[in-house]
């Protein structure tokens, strides 16, 4: 029997994992294109670097949601 706290912790970690995977997925696509762009034109490095970190927002959302879920556990 899983306790309520366990369920909360589990859902928080699933949130985190899914968000991180989504970020990784998005970044791999951008990263691949970025390396291509750099190979063609080295000056694009700085711009492309910024583009590559843009999806990091997704994992931050995941973190915020995970913290909110854990907050439920703390309050309960």
């Amino acid at each position: 029997m899983v306790s309520d706290l366990g369920m909360v912790a589990l859902s928080a970690s699933i949130t985190m994992a899914a968000a991180a995977l989504a970020t990784a997925w998005a970044e791999q696509a951008i990263g691949a294109a970025a390396v291509g762009a750099i190979a063609e034109k080295e000056e694009t490095f700085s711009k492309v670097l910024i583009l590559t970190v843009i999806p990091e927002t997704i994992v931050i959302f995941g973190l915020v949601v995970a913290i909110l879920i854990l907050g439920k556990a703390g309050g309960a």
Binding site: E56, T57, I60
Partner: peptide, 9 residues
């Protein structure tokens, strides 16, 4: 809204 939340980083 998502921009603002982004500062949580």
């Amino acid at each position: 809204a998502s921009n603002v939340l982004s500062y949580a980083r």
